Computed example of a mutant assay.
Amino acid sequence: MNQSIKKQITGHPFLKWAGGKGQLIQQINNYLPDNISTIDTYIEPFIGSGAIMFWLLSAYDNIKHVVINDINSDLINIYRVIKKEPLDLISELERIDTIYKNLTSYDNQKELYLALREEYNERNSSSRSVRNAALFIFLNRTCFNGLYRVNSKNKFNVPFGKYKNPKICDRETILRDSELLQKVEILCGDYTATKEYVSEKTFFYFDPPYKPISETSNFNSYTKFDFDDNEQNRLKQFCDEISATGAKFMLSNSDPRSINPDNNFFDKLYQEYNIMRVDAKRNINSKSDKRGTIKELLITNYLKSSATTNSI
């Protein structure tokens, strides 16, 4: 095990994110490829909040080239702003934070939330800016359960949350993440574009929109594009392609068998690969009794040489 894994993790996600992988770092660490200390390129085609990426960058000095991607252009705008204009973003967030917290009533705070949500929804494909990044973060910090959900017109439609003192501007995290992002190449588009960076010393981590396992578990509408079973199949074909180059990959997804023991969708789809079931906490539910531990999948195209696991 690379001794650098014992370093303090200095990078953290700057967003709350449904399905964020911070809680799975230990399990993912246990199943990293044996040659992780010789990997020089890390690629994450569905970056989301970046929990795994920030952890790996903090833990493994040997990773010199990092490529991240997401089809959500508003999310990618934040990464680019934090990389290039962190102080401007902090200033904008501090202004919003002051206005918000000077409003002492719930109704007034909700009114501001709705006004800024409307401003955010007036954005267009060319309006990538510090202001839009700040609005995104504000909405993320003050909306219900930190969800990011848009409709078919790409309009953010999550209702106002009930937080007494949300941390709208996390200055330290933004500055730490900005430093780490200096070595990161940031793409925006279909995940297949990352294939041009593949080599035998490449490690992919896939965290795609999860396959819903119940009628109430569909939280993958973070873009106006659906990620249905056809997309799950297309992703598997992409995994086949990069696996053929000698690159290694790990993929996370829901475990349909958690709800229906006869639902072997992923077991059949990835039958030639290695499938592990790990415990994950379900935190996104309006009913507290529906939250708790559930199984998720980790799928790899490699096996660990040892059955022992390592602690961070």
Rank of each mutant, 00 (worst) to 15 (best):
M1I: 12
M1P: 14
N2H: 13
Q3N: 09
K7V: 05
Q8E: 08
P13Y: 05
P13M: 12
L15K: 11
G19L: 04
G22N: 10
I25C: 03
I28N: 03
D34N: 13
N35E: 12
T41W: 03
I43S: 12
I43H: 06
L57R: 06
A59Q: 12
K64Y: 15
N69Y: 15
D70Q: 07
D70M: 11
R80G: 13
K83E: 11
D88H: 13
R95W: 07
I96V: 04
Y106V: 07
Q109N: 09
Y113S: 00
L116F: 11
E118T: 05
E119Q: 03
Y120M: 03
R123L: 03
N124K: 05
S126C: 11
S129A: 12
V130P: 02
A133E: 01
A133Q: 04
G146M: 01
L147Y: 01
R149T: 00
K153G: 03
N154K: 13
K155M: 04
F160V: 01
Y163N: 09
Y163V: 12
N165G: 06
I168C: 08
D170F: 05
L175V: 08
L175S: 07
S178W: 00
L180Q: 15
K183H: 01
G189N: 02
G189K: 02
Y191I: 09
K195T: 09
K195Y: 07
T202S: 14
S217L: 11
S217G: 13
S221G: 10
Y222P: 08
D226Y: 05
A244H: 08
M250E: 01
M250Y: 00
S254C: 09
S258I: 05
P261T: 13
E272S: 14
N274V: 15
M276A: 10
V278L: 05
K287M: 08
K295S: 11
S305L: 12
T308E: 09
N310W: 06
S311V: 14
